[in-house]
Amino acid sequence: MSAYEQYVGEKNKIDAYIEQQYIITGVREGLSGDWLELKHPGGDETALLVETADARKYFANLLIKQSRKV
């Protein structure tokens, strides 16, 4: 899988949660990548391990947009 395809895979997963109204509630950076914690207004929580550099950049853009909204 090319780096781009891997990125698109990660981006799509993140987008899927965001479309379902999840918001980012935490980011834990580590050796394996960044754990992105997401929470649904209904209370459901999940965490995604984001590995590719482009996806880690992508969610940072989302995070900044999210912080502007609140």
């Binding site: 990660e10 980011v27 995604l48 391990l49 984001v50 940072a60 995070l63 900044i64």
Partner: peptide, 29 residues
Amino acid sequence: PLSWNQRQAAIAAVGKGKEVDGTDKKEAV
């Protein structure tokens, strides 16, 4: 535009989360 410093500030602002319980909830994407 998004700099590394802006990114890290945004991450610091949202915090580390509370480390969601249960590995089944964690998903390597």
